[in-house]
Design a binder for these strands. Structure first.
Lengths: 364, 364
DNA sequence: CAGTGGTTTGAATCCCATC
DNA sequence: AGATGGGATTCAAACCACT
């Protein structure tokens, strides 16, 4: 996994690289990237120009054949850059790709064929999409993002609590309502848009906040106007951007003015999973609960006795607080910390309160 | 185009055919169908049982018809039924397919390869989706429909004005908010759902209203519970349903009670749109409030700091504006929108003022 | 009958550290 | 690397029992 594996390839950090994305990805060390966000071109004609063996034009020959040929070359292009991304991604990293109905099905199929495991498809609902002027279709008011891990068994980063916090303590859904990039955020030169498909920073912030940690490396193989790098820098992540058109490397200028948020603002909401694990036996060892103490379920229908080794006994059965809790309820599983209660001041309190005490003691 | 083209094949009308969809499609005359709605197996690939936090088991889709040995076999199946559909579709007809991230990319790719021309991808946003019980992904809150014509140059039916009327005289967007099928609409036998994936009638009504005329023939190659036929009949369209599982052919019973609306009743109803919910985190994302900004209660006794994920931190505690507001007051609950204030022009203003701004932005 | 509070349920690729 | 077991995890809507 060291540098040697890649013949001494080094990972540039906080750099925008001008060049072909596949060539440049091949120069990066394997398994070095935590998160990839890709906004690939979906102009089939462009892919065509890039990959047709000869430069002959095909219009007017046979529409069906032309279409197939275009899709085929686009698919080849898609597989190539996705495979190159797969190589540089850490096993526990993840990949996001954004697209529209023109290309997203090709991308999704290629992803799955390469072994990526789709975690969600996320819809960016635009508050202010361009109307359909001719009134012949529905207003194309969204784009689709695919979020995928490196494989079915792979672990991946998901800041569940942060996403929940962003949505007023409700689970974040797979449909996100965000305005398109306009106004002051939109980069312009001489009044004209610098980049045709500049993504809003809010979109990238949410992606990066959801699927990476502070200090992680975020890569964008199709940098464009640099929104991914901007959001990464602001959120205290390192970035690597690759962009073919040197004109777009003006993103470097844009980046200079971006200030990383202070560490306090970057702290994310953490759930119970992040808490240090305290075995039930530790409560007994620490003297917070004596062997022989009686524990009760909330309705006081069952009584269990604490034993010196941190197991409990109830109605002839013995085992962990979880196992016995499940057993007396006839349930598959049980969280013993919230199920079992002890008596204090004439009331029943969950033993989880004692775990909180234990954690405070252990932390001090 | 006449009957003779297909050796005397005849189009059954308002019939549910029990049989394999490809075999049965092959028996229908070519170019005889105006609109196809297909709800194919999703190939969910569910590996394990899933339990809710309260230990109840989720009744997932484990039917044999949803099991495929590989993506390759799913792709083959998809191409076959799509090709059969293509043959029976009129040149100016169109096709809808619904799916989730498990299968929709395969379907979209196959569609395009067969020469269908994608008109829109339409998102069905569920008002009441099943949550993500383990907190490991985003709530899977939508499904995707692909709407396609028979080719790039093909004409197709789109009732633009009807859709506009349905959406308060605004162009109908590509994201539709509709509840899942439950309550009285959900078919049950002995208290158990008759079909695992019954679609809401409102969804099918909108599809049929958008893409067909009264008197047109609507075909559903995977009839299931029969929602397509029900919606077609109600809207004065003829239907042809194909369903392999004879158990589901109970849809015939369901259909008997459906009455076709008289033309006057077909007038669309207009609903008042609820005020958009704006999570506090959206203010941060939209740049209306920077991470690190200080918030105060009206008396400026407490100071909290805004964080990048839309949570706030105050006196060691962290959480939503509501939670922390309640916490510092020692109250059970608190409306953070009116409790917390920010400083502007030397005065304290409630953050609710920023929510108003956000709503204006989101509405524009 | 209206309101309240508890229960059920839905196309779901749903854990992870330790041994 | 597979098995073990601790223990973390849910939202909207319909329905039902009860006051």
């Amino acid at each position: 996994m060291g540098v040697g594996d890649d013949g001494g390839l080094r990972l540039p950090r906080n750099k925008i690289i001008v060049g072909d994305c596949i060539e440049e990805l091949d120069k990066l060390p394997a398994k070095s990237i935590d998160l990839i966000f890709a906004d690939p071109p979906y102009n089939l004609q462009l892919a065509n120009e890039l990959y047709r063996p000869n430069n002959s034009r095909v219009d007017g020959v046979d529409d069906d054949w032309d279409k197939f040929s275009s899709f085929e070359s686009y698919d080849r292009f898609t597989r190539d850059w996705l495979a190159a991304c797969r190589r540089v991604l850490k096993p526990n990293g993840s990949l996001w790709v954004i697209g529209s109905y023109h290309n997203i099905f090709r991308v999704g199929t290629a992803l799955q064929d390469l072994g990526f495991w789709v975690l969600n498809d996320v819809i960016w609902r635009k508050t202010n999409p361009m109307p359909n002027f001719r009134g012949r279709r529905f207003t194309n008011a969204h784009e689709t993002m695919i979020w995928a891990s490196t494989g079915q068994k792979a672990r991946y980063t998901f800041n569940y609590e942060s996403m929940k916090a962003l949505n007023e303590d409700l689970q974040m859904r797979s449909d996100w309502l965000l305005p398109i990039c306009s106004g002051g955020e939109r980069l312009r030169q001489d009044g004209r848009k610098t980049h045709p498909t500049q993504k809003p920073e809010a979109l990238l912030q949410r992606v990066i906040l959801a699927a990476s940690h502070v200090g992680d490396v975020v890569l964008d193989p199709f940098m464009g106007s640099g929104t991914t790098a901007v959001a990464a820098k602001r959120l205290g992540r390192a970035f690597v951007g690759i962009e073919r058109e040197s004109a777009y490397a003006s993103a470097r200028e844009r980046l200079k003015s971006i200030v990383t948020l202070d560490p306090a603002s970057l702290q994310v909401s953490k759930g119970k999973r992040a808490e240090t694990r305290v075995p039930f036996g530790a409560l007994v060892e620490m003297g917070l609960l004596s062997p022989g103490t009686a524990l009760y379920d909330p309705a006081a229908r069952h009584e269990a006795k604490v034993r010196a080794d941190g197991s409990i006994a109830c109605a002839g059965a013995q085992g962990s607080i979880h196992k016995i809790g499940a057993h007396v309820q006839g349930a598959m599983a049980c969280n013993g910390w919230t199920f079992w209660h002890y008596e204090a001041d004439g009331a029943l309190k969950p033993i989880d309160a004692l775990r909180v005490e234990a954690r405070q003691k252990l932390a001090s």
